[in-house]
C-alpha cells in the first residue's frame, strides 16, 4: 500500500510543481497518472523514489515513510521500485546485457560491482528477463544500436531485474508509435497481472488509460483534480483536467 500524504514540491526557482497532493495506491493496482505537460506528473513519480526531494508531506510505503529514510534505507527502498523512462535512459555505449544487469546494483556488494562482477544467478536472470520482453538475441549489442521500442524493452527488463514490488513508469510510450506503445503497455500489464507488481504509469492518451488502467489520478498545475475509475472521465471531467479549450483526440 502506497499512501501519498499532502505531498508538496517547490523547486528552487519558486515553481510549485506539486501542491498538497494526497491519494492512496493499493497493492497490485495499475494506476494511470494523467495531466498536461508540466502538470507535475514526472515530479510526482520522482518524489516517490526520491530522485527529487519533496519539500513537504509524507510518502508511506507499507507503513514506512520514504521521505524520512536515510541513504542506506533509501538504497533498500529504491531497489524494490523499478523505474521506466520516456527516453529509456539506457547507457548507450554499454551492452544491452550490462544495462539490464545494472538493475541489480541495489542488491550486489558495491565492491564487486566496481569490478564489473555479477553473480552467475544474476547473469541467468538477466537473460531470462530479456527473453521475457522478447529481445534475448540482442544481449551483446550496444544499447544505441537498438530501435526505440527495443530500447524501452531493455528499460523494462532492467526494472524487472530489481524484483520490484512497484514500477514507476514516466510516460513510457510517449516516444513510440501506437503499435509499439501497445506492445510496451502489454508488457507492463503482464508484469502487473502475473507478478503482482503495483504500477504507477503517467500517460497522455486516454484510450491507453481506458484500455490498461485500473484507476486514474489527474493533476493540473500540481493539484490533484480527479481520482477515480477510467470510465468516470466524462466530457466535463475532461475539461477540468485538460482545461476549457481542450478537445479529445482519441
Amino acid at each position: 500500500m502506497l499512501q501519498i500524504r499532502n505531498l508538496t514540491k517547490i523547486y528552487d526557482g519558486g515553481v510549485k510543481a506539486l501542491d498538497n497532493v494526497s491519494f492512496d495506491v493499493p497493492d497490485n493496482q495499475f494506476l494511470a497518472v494523467i495531466g498536461l505537460s508540466g502538470s507535475g506528473k514526472s515530479t510526482l513519480l520522482r518524489c516517490i523514489n526520491r530522485l527529487i526531494e519533496p519539500t513537504d508531506g509524507q510518502i508511506l510505503w507499507n507503513g514506512e515513510d520514504i521521505t524520512k529514510a536515510s541513504p542506506e534505507e533509501m538504497r533498500r527502498i529504491r531497489r524494490k521500485i523499478g523505474m521506466v523512462f520516456q527516453h529509456f535512459n539506457l547507457v548507450h555505449r554499454s551492452k544491452v546485457i550490462t544495462n539490464v544487469l545494472a538493475g541489480r546494483l541495489g542488491y550486489i556488494n558495491p565492491a564487486w560491482s566496481l569490478l564489473n562482477r555479477f553473480p552467475k544467478t544474476d547473469m541467468e536472470k538477466a537473460i531470462k528477463q530479456l527473453e521475457r520482453v522478447g529481445i534475448a538475441d540482442k544481449a551483446d549489442h550496444r544499447a544505441d544500436e537498438l530501435s526505440g521500442g527495443q530500447q524501452q524493452r531493455v528499460g523494462i527488463a532492467r526494472a524487472l531485474m530489481q524484483d520490484p514490488e512497484m514500477i514507476l513508469a514516466d510516460e513510457p510510450v510517449a516516444s513510440l508509435d501506437p503499435v509499439l506503445a501497445h506492445s510496451i503497455m502489454k508488457h507492463l500489464e503482464d508484469i502487473n497481472d502475473k507478478d503482482g507488481v503495483t504500477v504507477l504509469c503517467s500517460l497522455h492518451f486516454l484510450d491507453l488509460v481506458h484500455r490498461y488502467a485500473d484507476r486514474v489520478v489527474a493533476l493540473n498545475a500540481g493539484k490533484l483534480v480527479f481520482e477515480g475509475l477510467p470510465n468516470e472521465i466524462d466530457d466535463k471531467k475532461f475539461k477540468d483536467i485538460y482545461g476549457r479549450d481542450a478537445e479529445r483526440v482519441g
Partner: peptide, 17 residues
Amino acid sequence: EAIQATGANRLQTIVYA
C-alpha cells in the same frame, strides 16, 4: 537518473552511468 533509481550508490553510479 536511471542508475540511481535502481538503488546504486554513488560509486556504482559513476562506474555504470
